Amino acid sequence: MTLVEWSERVFEELRLSGSEPLQKADVDRILDLARDAAHSVARPAAPLTTYLLGVAVGRGADPEEAAAALSRLALAHAEDDKTD
């Protein structure tokens, strides 16, 4: 099962009908953000950060812009840690 197929099952389970299904680019964006949070902040930051991305998108934020902003934040955190 691909992650796109999994997301389709999750959409069904959560009764998110009427919502656009996730495309591969969406899945990649979420996984990239999770990677940046896990590697730059801490492993537990990955699910928390992607959850908060979902909250923001659910409240109207642009998914690409919000994910990019959060990735920048995580990567900046890692850079800050290097200089401390």
Rank of each mutant, 00 (worst) to 15 (best):
D26A: 05
D26N: 07
V27I: 15
V27S: 07
V27T: 08
V27R: 03
D28H: 04
D28L: 09
R29H: 05
R29K: 08
I30V: 14
I30H: 01
I30L: 14
I30Q: 01
I30Y: 07
D32W: 03
L33D: 01
A34G: 12
A34P: 00
R35V: 05
R35I: 09
R35Q: 04
R35T: 08
D36A: 11
D36T: 05
D36E: 11
A37K: 02
A37E: 00
A37W: 01
A37G: 05
A38H: 02
H39F: 01
H39R: 01
H39V: 00
S40M: 08
S40Y: 07
S40G: 14
V41R: 00
V41M: 03
V41T: 04
A42N: 12
R43A: 01
R43P: 07
P44L: 05
P44G: 05
P44M: 05
A45R: 04
A45D: 03
A45M: 07
A45E: 04
A45G: 06
A46E: 01
A46R: 01
A46W: 05
P47N: 11
P47Y: 10
P47S: 14
T49E: 05
T49L: 10
T49G: 12
T49D: 06
T50V: 15
T50C: 15
T50E: 10
Y51D: 11
Y51L: 14
Y51V: 13
L52Y: 14
L52K: 08
L52T: 06
L53S: 06
L53M: 11
L53Q: 08
G54P: 05
G54A: 08
G54L: 02
A56V: 03
V57T: 09
G58S: 15
G58Y: 08
R59I: 00
R59P: 00
R59Y: 08
R59H: 09
G60T: 06
G60H: 03
G60K: 04
G60E: 06
G60S: 09
A61V: 05
A61T: 06
A61L: 04
A61M: 06
D62T: 00
D62A: 06
D62G: 03
P63A: 09
P63T: 07
P63N: 08
E64S: 15
E64Y: 07
E65T: 10
E65A: 10
E65G: 10
E65D: 07
A66G: 04
A66T: 01
A66I: 00
A66D: 00
A67H: 06
A67F: 09
A67K: 02
A67Y: 05
A68Y: 06
A68V: 13
A68Q: 10
A69P: 05
A69Q: 14
A69D: 13
L70K: 07
L70E: 03
S71A: 10
S71M: 15
R72Y: 10
R72V: 14
R72I: 09
L73D: 02
L73A: 14
L73Y: 04
A74L: 04
A74M: 06
L75F: 04
A76F: 11
H77F: 14
H77T: 15
H77Q: 12
H77R: 13
H77W: 13
A78L: 12
A78P: 13
E79S: 13
E79I: 12
E79F: 09
E79N: 15
D80V: 09
D80W: 12
D81L: 12
D81V: 14
D81C: 10
D81P: 10
K82C: 12
K82R: 15
K82E: 13
K82D: 14
D84W: 07
D84I: 08
